[in-house]
Design a protein around this nucleic acid. Structure first.
Ligand SMILES: [Mn+2]
Ligand SMILES: [Mn+2]
Ligand SMILES: [Mn+2]
Ligand SMILES: [Mn+2]
Lengths: 218, 218
DNA sequence: ATTAAAATTTAGACAAATCTAAAAATAGGT
DNA sequence: ACCTATTTTTAGATTTGTCTAAATTTTAAT
């Protein structure tokens, strides 16, 4: 497996949101920041290797083998992110770029030892679930803050947008995963929210609320 | 810098034993397990980038910039080796292969944090010195066991051959870095040595003795 | 059913890193 | 000084992953 092949499989997986379903050439090209013609070339190669299903003009989808490979890359990516935050004091906005490199290191022993060192974490610093060694996913029961009803209460458990600017914004406003959150008011005009978080009150735009995942209290 | 370029610089540095001096095309080809014609091609590219001095038929040598780059790769390689042994319980015969991959990860912050996590080690698991951030080398005052006089005493501080088979052999015979060692007798016939190590006595072939570095006691 | 727009594939090119085979330069022995 | 063996370079090909431009197929609107 080349690094490029691994990145394609990961992109296809992410575009399918974990589900099966066919992904378009253009969507993959955009995600990979490459051209559609390059995607077609790679689709043929991956199909040849039994990692994707590909029929001309019909889109691309992962085979079981392709899904397994994608999950193993994602597992490595997220474990490395946890490692960087927990053991090396990286902030959650710094880890992605480095994990993009580390996820391609080939050593089963290495990643298993990292997993053990971190005490087998279930989620990465952005709240995304870490697949187990055998590719099992533990997706959390969560919803976007923007989709929760007024007066609902919950715990921040993840971000939808994990770009550095958004994460830094959250830091600046002391919004962190694990914080409890309660919707005090919803503004009809701009759909901004008045919320209570860890004692204090603050106002949050719709854009922010639609990128924050919350686990509702029972 | 591509991974291949980095590997060439590292190979040239190692072949020069850290000193300046011109290295032959064939020597580099052998070290890199590639063909001389490939080395010539790379020599031109690296010369273009100011990393090596190269004149047709005159051999190849590192510029100051090339040396700095080589040292930074070696620094990363050796720090990762220490990390694998100290934090992840790898054995010293397992680390090299993985470090060959990890040494190419591009993140200054990452390697500095690993350095700090390890408490700024001076030597790697094979006794090789770890260059500082600014490329300073602390080569130890050591000599091959095979070149020490009879009755001399010292401490094992490194291996010349760090191949897995040799390292496993040392493990099996409980010969480890840090052990004290005393030469009891030298056999003229086959140049084997009778030594005392950590209480017990054992016989060591010349081949072994000429791959073990010892720091002589004052 | 036509047709225009969008998506996708093909054809041909290119850069990086490698190879083989052939040519050129160097080094060493007489 | 000459010849030969060795070393090194060149020329041309290959693989991987990418690109642009052109051709083809699909889609969706009339
Ligand atoms: Mn990430
Ligand atoms: Mn993440
Ligand atoms: Mn090593
Ligand atoms: Mn080493």
């Amino acid at each position: 497996m080349t690094r490029s092949e691994e990145n394609y499989l990961k992109a296809i997986f992410h575009l399918g949101n974990g589900e099966a379903g066919s992904i378009s050439t253009n969507a993959i090209a955009e995600q990979m920041e490459t051209k559609p013609s390059s995607v077609t070339d790679m689709a043929k190669k991956l199909a040849e290797k039994g990692l994707v299903h590909y029929k001309k003009y019909q889109g691309i989808s992962l085979t079981d083998a392709g899904t397994r490979t994608a999950l193993s890359i994602i597992r490595k990516h997220r474990l490395w992110e946890v490692f960087l935050v927990k053991k090396l004091d990286f902030t959650w906005d710094e880890v992605h770029e480095v994990a993009e490199q580390l996820e391609h290191i080939k050593s089963e022993k290495l990643i298993d030892k990292i997993d053990a060192l971190l005490d087998f974490p279930k989620y990465d610093p952005h709240g995304d679930p870490i697949p187990t060694k055998d590719g099992k996913f533990m997706e959390r029961d969560k919803q976007l803050l923007s989709e929760m009803p007024i007066h609902a209460q919950g715990v921040c458990v993840g971000v939808k947008d994990s770009s550095a600017p958004f994460l830094k914004f959250l830091d600046k406003n002391k919004i962190a995963l694990g914080n409890t959150i309660k919707i005090l008011d919803k503004e009809d005009f701009d759909q901004s929210l008045q919320i209570q978080m860890e004692g204090r009150e603050l106002r949050i735009s719709h854009q922010i609320a639609s990128n924050l995942y919350v686990k509702k209290n029972d």
